[in-house]
Design a protein around this nucleic acid. Structure first.
Length: 193
DNA sequence: CCCTGATTCGC
DNA sequence: GCGAATCAGG
């Protein structure tokens, strides 16, 4: 693929819209995000500003200088995550709803809380039970830093496994489980739907 | 690990 | 001019 006028045009348009290089590359097809970025630079629109006279008095001379002009408007408009986790459940003392068992988990690492029939958004719970069907059902040893560490079932039984779905970046759980793990305290009180 | 853009450098 | 490889951040 070559950079035809049309393709360059689309590139400019998308870049101007704040699309990421990978998105643009995907849209164009036949190119990688590297190609897109390279082109963007060659076109001289690395700085997403249509301003016009993008004066660049200084450019090279300092290969080590890592200047951060900073110009990140809003790349990811999609972020249905508003409420932040208030109480990080890192505490090990969080064993609420295991029916009646000595949930003595051998692992030394902090394990996630049990679903606890607490009061959680019905929706969130529904979501959980839903995804638990798709769960990878991993064993303790199969867990990685990229797998949801939400435990399901009774540790003292064969019927015990970890969710194992892809975690939400940063978090220890998948999206669904993050939902019930980090309850916005707001919805805790006076939550009726 | 996933992602982002920035830079380099052989082609 | 091109873009893979690499670098630097998040």
């Amino acid at each position: 693929m070559s950079w035809t006028d049309e393709r360059v045009e689309l590139l400019k348009k998308m870049w101007g819209e704040g699309q990421s290089a990978s998105q643009i590359a995907k849209e164009l097809g036949g190119v990688t995000r590297n190609a897109v970025i390279g082109k963007v630079h060659r076109l001289g629109l690395s700085n997403r500003s249509g301003g016009g006279g993008a004066s660049k008095p200084e450019a090279k001379a300092k290969p080590e200088a890592k200047a951060k002009p900073a110009a990140k408007p809003a790349k990811k408009p999609s972020a249905p995550e508003a409420a932040k986790p208030a109480p990080e459940p890192k505490a090990e003392a969080r064993q609420a709803a295991t029916p009646a068992r000595k949930q003595i988990i051998p692992a030394g690492q902090p394990l996630p809380p049990q679903p606890s029939a607490n009061e959680i958004d019905p929706e969130a719970l529904a979501k959980v039970s839903e995804i638990e069907k798709k769960a990878k059902k991993l064993t303790l040893m199969e867990l990685t830093e990229r797998t949801c560490k939400w435990p399901v079932g009774d540790p003292a039984t064969e019927d015990f496994w970890f969710c194992g779905l892809p975690v939400q970046q940063g978090k220890p759980y998948c999206e669904a489980h993050v939902g019930v793990a980090f309850q916005p305290m707001s919805s805790r009180r006076d939550r009726r739907r």
